[in-house]
Simulated scan of single mutants.
Amino acid sequence: MSYTFDIGDDTIWGPANSVARIFIGTVKALSDEYRIPSGVGDDLMGMVEIDPIAFSGFVQRVLAERAMSLHLYKDMMLDGVLPILVAMADRGRLGIVGGTPEERAYLEEVRARRLPMLAPSE
Protein backbone atom coordinates (compact mmCIF):
# COMPACT_ATOMS: atom_id res chain seq x y z
CA MET A 1 0.00 0.00 0.00
CA SER A 2 1.03 3.55 -0.59
CA TYR A 3 -0.33 7.05 -0.50
CA THR A 4 -0.96 9.30 -3.45
CA PHE A 5 -0.34 13.03 -3.42
CA ASP A 6 -2.30 14.61 -6.27
CA ILE A 7 -2.62 17.97 -7.95
CA GLY A 8 -5.88 17.70 -9.83
CA ASP A 9 -5.76 14.53 -11.90
CA ASP A 10 -1.96 14.21 -11.67
CA THR A 11 -0.28 12.10 -9.00
CA ILE A 12 2.97 13.83 -8.09
CA TRP A 13 4.17 11.38 -5.44
CA GLY A 14 3.30 7.90 -4.23
CA PRO A 15 5.33 7.09 -1.09
CA ALA A 16 4.90 4.15 1.26
CA ASN A 17 2.40 4.61 4.09
CA SER A 18 4.95 5.22 6.85
CA VAL A 19 6.91 7.71 4.73
CA ALA A 20 3.71 9.58 3.86
CA ARG A 21 2.63 9.81 7.50
CA ILE A 22 6.04 11.16 8.58
CA PHE A 23 5.97 13.65 5.69
CA ILE A 24 2.43 14.85 6.53
CA GLY A 25 3.37 15.28 10.21
CA THR A 26 6.48 17.25 9.31
CA VAL A 27 4.56 19.48 6.90
CA LYS A 28 1.93 20.14 9.56
CA ALA A 29 4.61 21.09 12.10
CA LEU A 30 6.23 23.50 9.62
CA SER A 31 2.86 24.96 8.65
CA ASP A 32 2.11 25.60 12.33
CA GLU A 33 5.57 27.00 13.03
CA TYR A 34 5.56 29.43 10.09
CA ARG A 35 1.83 30.17 10.35
CA ILE A 36 1.24 29.52 6.66
CA PRO A 37 -1.09 26.99 5.05
CA SER A 38 0.82 24.10 3.50
CA GLY A 39 -1.60 23.29 0.74
CA VAL A 40 -1.37 19.63 1.74
CA GLY A 41 -4.95 18.43 2.15
CA ASP A 42 -6.39 15.95 4.59
CA ASP A 43 -5.53 12.27 4.39
CA LEU A 44 -8.55 10.68 2.74
CA MET A 45 -7.80 6.97 3.05
CA GLY A 46 -4.34 7.35 1.57
CA MET A 47 -5.20 10.04 -0.97
CA VAL A 48 -3.99 13.59 -0.37
CA GLU A 49 -4.97 16.50 -2.60
CA ILE A 50 -2.46 19.34 -2.96
CA ASP A 51 -3.66 22.93 -3.40
CA PRO A 52 -1.05 24.16 -5.89
CA ILE A 53 -1.25 27.84 -4.93
CA ALA A 54 -0.94 27.29 -1.17
CA PHE A 55 1.65 24.54 -1.64
CA SER A 56 3.81 26.75 -3.85
CA GLY A 57 3.76 29.53 -1.24
CA PHE A 58 4.56 27.03 1.49
CA VAL A 59 7.54 25.58 -0.38
CA GLN A 60 8.85 29.08 -1.10
CA ARG A 61 8.58 29.95 2.61
CA VAL A 62 10.38 26.81 3.77
CA LEU A 63 13.07 27.45 1.14
CA ALA A 64 13.51 31.02 2.41
CA GLU A 65 13.70 29.82 6.02
CA ARG A 66 16.36 27.26 5.10
CA ALA A 67 18.39 29.71 3.03
CA MET A 68 18.60 32.30 5.80
CA SER A 69 19.06 29.85 8.66
CA LEU A 70 22.24 29.90 10.70
CA HIS A 71 21.21 27.04 12.97
CA LEU A 72 22.83 23.65 12.35
CA TYR A 73 19.96 21.55 13.72
CA LYS A 74 17.26 23.58 11.99
CA ASP A 75 19.19 23.19 8.73
CA MET A 76 19.41 19.43 9.22
CA MET A 77 15.69 19.11 9.91
CA LEU A 78 14.67 21.27 6.95
CA ASP A 79 17.11 19.36 4.74
CA GLY A 80 15.12 16.23 5.55
CA VAL A 81 11.87 17.52 4.03
CA LEU A 82 12.70 20.46 1.75
CA PRO A 83 14.19 18.36 -1.08
CA ILE A 84 10.96 16.34 -1.16
CA LEU A 85 8.86 19.53 -1.20
CA VAL A 86 10.92 20.93 -4.08
CA ALA A 87 10.71 17.67 -6.04
CA MET A 88 6.94 17.54 -5.55
CA ALA A 89 6.56 21.16 -6.62
CA ASP A 90 8.75 20.56 -9.67
CA ARG A 91 6.78 17.47 -10.61
CA GLY A 92 3.60 19.56 -10.29
CA ARG A 93 5.18 22.28 -12.45
CA LEU A 94 4.65 24.92 -9.75
CA GLY A 95 7.61 27.12 -10.70
CA ILE A 96 9.58 27.30 -7.46
CA VAL A 97 12.38 29.85 -7.87
CA GLY A 98 15.09 31.22 -5.64
CA GLY A 99 14.79 34.87 -4.75
CA THR A 100 18.27 35.11 -3.25
CA PRO A 101 21.65 33.64 -4.22
CA GLU A 102 21.37 31.25 -1.24
CA GLU A 103 17.94 30.03 -2.32
CA ARG A 104 19.08 29.56 -5.93
CA ALA A 105 22.14 27.60 -4.78
CA TYR A 106 19.98 25.37 -2.58
CA LEU A 107 17.53 24.69 -5.41
CA GLU A 108 20.37 23.91 -7.80
CA GLU A 109 21.85 21.41 -5.33
CA VAL A 110 18.50 19.74 -4.64
CA ARG A 111 17.51 19.54 -8.30
CA ALA A 112 20.88 18.00 -9.21
CA ARG A 113 19.93 15.01 -7.02
CA ARG A 114 16.96 14.20 -9.28
CA LEU A 115 14.92 12.58 -6.56
CA PRO A 116 12.62 9.89 -7.94
CA MET A 117 9.02 10.85 -7.13
CA LEU A 118 7.36 7.76 -8.51
CA ALA A 119 3.62 7.46 -8.59
CA PRO A 120 2.15 4.01 -7.89
CA SER A 121 1.57 3.29 -11.59
CA GLU A 122 5.13 4.11 -12.64
Results as ranks from 00 to 15, higher is better:
M1V: 15
S2P: 12
Y3R: 00
Y3C: 04
T4W: 03
F5T: 02
F5C: 06
D6I: 00
D6T: 07
I7N: 01
G8K: 09
G8R: 10
G8D: 04
D9M: 07
D9P: 07
D9F: 12
W13F: 08
P15I: 00
P15T: 01
N17Q: 09
S18W: 08
V19M: 07
R21L: 12
I22R: 07
I22E: 06
I22S: 01
G25H: 00
G25N: 07
T26M: 05
V27G: 00
V27T: 04
A29W: 02
A29S: 13
S31G: 04
D32T: 09
D32E: 09
E33C: 03
Y34M: 13
Y34C: 06
R35L: 15
I36V: 14
I36N: 01
P37I: 07
P37G: 03
P37Q: 11
S38T: 05
G39C: 08
G39K: 01
G41N: 10
D42L: 13
D42V: 08
L44M: 12
M45P: 00
G46N: 04
G46C: 04
M47V: 14
M47P: 04
E49V: 13
E49S: 12
E49M: 13
D51E: 03
P52C: 02
I53D: 10
A54V: 04
F55H: 07
F55R: 00
F55I: 06
S56A: 09
G57N: 13
F58M: 02
F58S: 02
F58T: 03
V59W: 07
V59I: 02
L63Q: 01
L63R: 02
L63D: 01
A64Q: 05
A64R: 12
E65F: 02
A67K: 03
A67M: 13
A67V: 06
A67E: 05
S69P: 09
L72G: 12
L72E: 15
Y73N: 11
Y73Q: 15
Y73S: 10
K74H: 11
M76L: 14
L78Q: 04
G80L: 10
V81F: 06
V81Q: 10
L82R: 02
I84L: 12
L85D: 04
L85A: 14
L85H: 07
V86R: 09
V86H: 10
V86F: 12
A89Y: 01
D90F: 15
D90W: 13
R91P: 01
R91Y: 03
R91N: 08
R93F: 13
R93E: 12
R93C: 12
G95V: 11
G95D: 12
G95Q: 11
I96M: 06
I96T: 06
V97I: 11
V97C: 13
G98C: 13
G99A: 12
G99F: 15
T100Q: 15
T100W: 11
T100E: 10
P101F: 03
E102P: 08
E102K: 08
E103N: 09
Y106I: 15
Y106S: 10
Y106T: 14
E108I: 05
E108G: 11
E109V: 09
V110M: 08
A112C: 14
R113D: 11
R113V: 05
R113I: 10
R114Y: 08
L115S: 08
P116L: 11
M117T: 07
L118A: 15
A119I: 14
P120V: 06
P120D: 04
P120F: 03
P120W: 01
S121L: 14
